[in-house]
Design a protein around this nucleic acid. Structure first.
Lengths: 152, 152
DNA sequence: TGTTGTTACATGCATACGCATATAAATTGG
DNA sequence: CCAATTTATATGCGTATGCATGTAACAACA
């Protein structure tokens, strides 16, 4: 049982862990961003398709989707226009809120996400699959999940 | 002793850990990127100052610095011009290689990095300081260090 | 030593980005 | 039920970005 911390961890230990996590992420992404699956779609665009796919019901409002992304709301708005023009997602009015747009993947968008996703998974696995043992990956998953769920 | 894995971890366990790490990073960065310390300098620009500060000797060639960043070489080249114009870094010819530019922080650049860094550390700590126990942060640091060192 | 290839950095160009703001719909408070 | 506020998305505008390519210096090798 990984008990919730009662006394907060010291600043140094916390920041060292954060910087290490951040640098690991950069190192992996640097490698993977050069792979051919990101020639048709940028990583940011793929991330939008990915998040749309895993969101409950496969639909999301623009603002809700934006919460899982680092780009600004206006940038996402225009990216959605581009992805719509490419036939990958649809943008339809939300019946319960006339301001909102419900975004969802088209069949083509789902296919593209899955195709890129397969390649991406392959390349991530090539990069880090032997870096840690199975138990260590499970630990890493648990620690980062716990970290994430503590945000806000 | 955290033994180096002899048999690679299964794909699912590896990818689950990676996605969890990635999402945790996004969640933290989303919160922190809105903080006022990034009004004077963007996060990407701060990251350049940070990496210049911690690199051995406080000097680095542009290409070497670029290895620790997600932006492209041309983008870094222009960002360096802007940071030079702001008086934060210097760009001088490498005596051992006429093609290369040695980058280093000016005293002002160091001061700006440290000032932003202090605020940044404070806000990261506010976001995640109580998310994990001290032991868990140490584990997280060790796992992500190991992950990073395995890239390549 | 000259040719061929590679490496380091810079630049032209089209595009994506963020910030500020506009618009329009929902919510809140009197 | 109307005015003020908040929320959801879009757009104008200046700037940063990536890709392709240019230039110049180094390296390798005949």
């Amino acid at each position: 049982m990984t008990g919730t911390s009662n006394t907060p961890a010291p600043v140094k230990v916390t920041i060292d862990a954060w910087e290490s996590l951040f640098r690991a992420q950069v190192a992996v992404m640097r490698k993977v961003s050069a792979k051919p699956e990101f020639h048709k779609l940028s990583m940011r665009e793929y991330d939008v398709l990915f998040n749309l796919r895993i969101c409950p019901g496969g639909r999301s409002r623009l603002v809700d989707l934006n919460r899982y992304l680092l780009i600004s709301q206006p940038s996402l708005s225009r990216m959605v226009t581009r992805l719509e023009d490419k036939g990958l997602i649809t943008r339809e009015a939300d019946p319960t809120d006339q301001r909102a747009m419900q975004l969802s993947l088209t069949p083509k968008g789902l296919a593209v996400q899955q195709e890129i996703g397969r390649e991406h998974v392959k390349h991530i696995y090539e990069q880090i699959g032997t870096a840690l043992s199975e138990d260590e990956f499970i630990q890493l998953q648990q620690l980062t999940s716990k970290l994430r769920s503590a945000i806000q």
